[in-house]
Design a protein around this nucleic acid. Structure first.
Length: 603
DNA sequence: TCACAGCCTG
DNA sequence: CAGGCTGTGA
């Protein structure tokens, strides 16, 4: 366009402005010394501005612009985390009292428990007396109650003064009990769970259920556990003590022995289940700062050591949740089903890591190694095992670091990304997952939505000096080198929307600041090239400062600033849509974009 | 219903 | 700057 024509248009536009946008009150308006908007926004703004002339945008927003509702919402979000599926599906391990977790084990574990319970049920009949082990918790007592039901029924008969019980009947009962226990052990052997204690020789040494207090507790069956787990020895000692105390209650002792067997089996099952969890659990960090390591390790060790179902239940609870997490994470993350077929680089599944939700069965070779090392560490049997664990953990950590470097940064914990080692993918020659390393050249030519480049963005910003509300026709003329699609158009419109947003934010900010500074005459508000407002705007739209900003833009900026000043001083900002009137005025101040913007390439 | 502007958020 | 969302006008 001819510059002269451009100037004409520009100045006519200016005249339109003076005619239409209340130039009269702009030139003569003198607001109340005290702004009428006495709401929290103004107060906050005033308060903040006492120490600093120009408020940082963030401060400004927190005090002046941000409405209370948004703040409240934010806090509400913190105080009341959304009770969505994520929250429900990812409960904290400490989400409930450990003792109340009711054996929510994995399906395999449940099957195992069902087997044990079937055995127990085969032995149980009617309610009986409680076990005398004072160390057992409620859970244990319930278990023992069930275990002791049937035999104690008989015991109850005896203990209740049934001295008429014949010796035959007694022996028959003992025989039945022995049979039960043999069946128990046979089943255990069959499942292979207690392999170290189930060879035939040990079975031969198994107690013969004499009433002798010496033979009963000192059986090889129990001792074998004591050898491997010292803490079990403590329990055993307590158990033995109870036995000595209740010497004359021989049958309950046997029941308790069986209960111990069952408890051991359950304990083992839990331990194994926990181990299995480590195939998919976040690998523990050796860092002392990592609480997850401590928290997860501790129950593992204590589960075997203390043989308390309280701790077992804790473990059980955790291990139950994890598969759910993984299941859900898989559904969320693996958008490209073929991607998880790859041998992706091991991913860190620390509980508080965004990638924790990722589950990759293909990583079993590493997770199993970690699991093995961890088990060695748990057992405390081998320093070699611990060394292996540390070495593996170090390797794992290094892998994690590499993963973080190579993968895209995760913006938020909610973001689920599949971190793939590009080198690995390249080595696999998989074109559909080809990931090119970022190069500076490509960054400079950063493509935006299949057409718009950073140069287009820069050009759009310069256009903003002339037009705040460009029509689609103007956009097409100015970005003729772009294949216009609905998406491209929307993006360009969005760009200008963002430009306007920043523009009006600056205007409001400086208008409020002027009011606070005590500016009483709107004529005192000017926007020159040396003004703070112009610097802020120029920094945003013309960062390189290689473009001569038209004077008309300064005029429009000044008009806008005064409009904001007047509106705020009149208390119009109490109306949620108070800015619309200003927008309506400013949209009429658009100028034509110089011809250079139309004919030239975006670069 | 669609397109667009504006607001909010990351 | 982009995406989601809502309100509005044609």
């Amino acid at each position: 366009m001819d510059p002269s024509v451009w100037s004409k248009v520009m100045y006519s536009s200016s005249n339109i402005c003076l005619d239409s946008c209340s130039a009269e009150h702009l030139s003569s308006f003198q607001p109340n010394p005290v702004p009428s908007n006495s709401d929290a926004q103004g107060v906050s703004f005033h308060k903040d501005s006492e120490s600093t002339k120009i408020l940082p945008e963030s401060d400004y927003y927190s005090g002046a612009e941000a409405q209370g509702s948004s703040l409240i919402c934010s806090s509400q979000l913190e105080l009341n985390p959304p009770r969505d599926g994520t929250t429900r599906r990812h409960p904290s391990p400490a989400s409930g009292p450990c003792g109340h977790h009711d054996w929510n084990l994995s399906s395999g574990h449940q099957a195992k428990r069902a087997r044990v319970e079937n055995i127990i049920k085969g032995m149980t009949g009617s309610p009986g007396m409680h076990c005398a082990d004072g160390t057992t918790n409620q859970r244990e007592e319930e278990e023992n109650e069930r275990i002791g039901e049937l035999p104690l029924n008989q015991e109850h008969i005896e203990g209740s003064g049934s001295s008429s019980t014949s010796l035959m009947a007694r022996k028959q009962l003992e025989s039945q009990q022995q049979q039960h226990l043999r069946q128990l052990r046979t089943k255990f052997n069959h499942t292979g769970e207690v392999t170290e204690t189930t060879d035939s020789s040990k079975e031969e040494k198994y107690p013969t259920w004499n009433d002798s207090p010496d033979t009963c507790p000192r059986d090889a069956f129990t001792d074998s556990y004591c050898e491997s787990e010292s803490s079990r020895s403590r329990k055993y000692q307590g158990w033995k003590k109870v036995k000595l105390i209740n010497y004359f209650q021989s049958k309950p002792e046997r029941i308790k022995l069986m209960a111990d067997v069952l408890k051991y089996e359950l304990s083992r099952a839990v331990s194994r289940s926990v181990d299995s969890v480590f195939k998919s659990m976040p690998l523990l960090q050796s860092s002392p700062n990592d609480e997850g390591s401590v928290e997860t390790d501790s129950p593992l060790q204590s589960s075997v050591a203390k043989d308390k179902k309280t701790s077992l239940s804790c473990c059980g609870n955790e291990e139950v949740q994890v598969p759910d997490v993984q299941t859900e994470a898989l559904s969320l993350v693996v958008q490209k089903p073929r991607l998880d077929r790859l041998t992706l680089q091991p991913r860190v599944r620390a509980q508080n890591h965004p990638d924790a939700a990722l589950h990759d069965d293909q990583n079993n070779h590493t997770t199993i190694a970690h699991q093995h090392a961890l088990r060695c560490l748990q057992d405390g049997r081998s320093e070699v095992g611990q060394t292996k664990f540390e070495m593996f953990d170090a390797h794992w950590n290094s892998v994690k670091v590499r993963s973080k470097v190579n993968s895209r940064s995760v913006r938020s914990p909610q973001t689920h990304t599949v971190s793939v080692d590009p080198m690995l993918l390249e080595s696999l020659c998989l074109p559909h997952v080809k990931i090119e390393p970022e190069s500076p050249v490509k960054n400079n030519l950063y493509m935006l939505n299949e057409g718009l480049t950073t140069n287009h963005l820069k050009k759009a910003k310069l256009m903003f000096f002339y037009t705040r509300y460009p029509s689609s026709l103007v956009l097409k003329m100015c970005f003729h080198d772009v294949q216009f699609t609905r998406c491209i158009t929307s993006q360009l419109i969005k760009w200008f929307s963002n430009f306007r947003e920043f523009y009006y934010i600056q205007m409001e900010k400086f208008a409020r600041h002027a009011l606070i500074e005590g500016v009483t005459d709107v004529r005192g508000l000017t926007v020159g090239r040396e003004s703070e407002l112009f610097r802020a705007l120029n920094m945003h739209y013309n960062k390189a400062n290689d473009f001569q900003v038209p004077d008309r833009f300064l005029e429009v900026a000044e008009i806008t600033l005064r409009e904001f000043y007047i509106a705020i001083s009149m208390g119009k900002d109490r109306d949620p849509s108070w800015k619309k009137a200003i927008y309506k005025v400013i949209c009429k101040l658009d100028s034509d974009v110089p011809a250079e913007f139309n004919s030239h390439h975006s670069g």
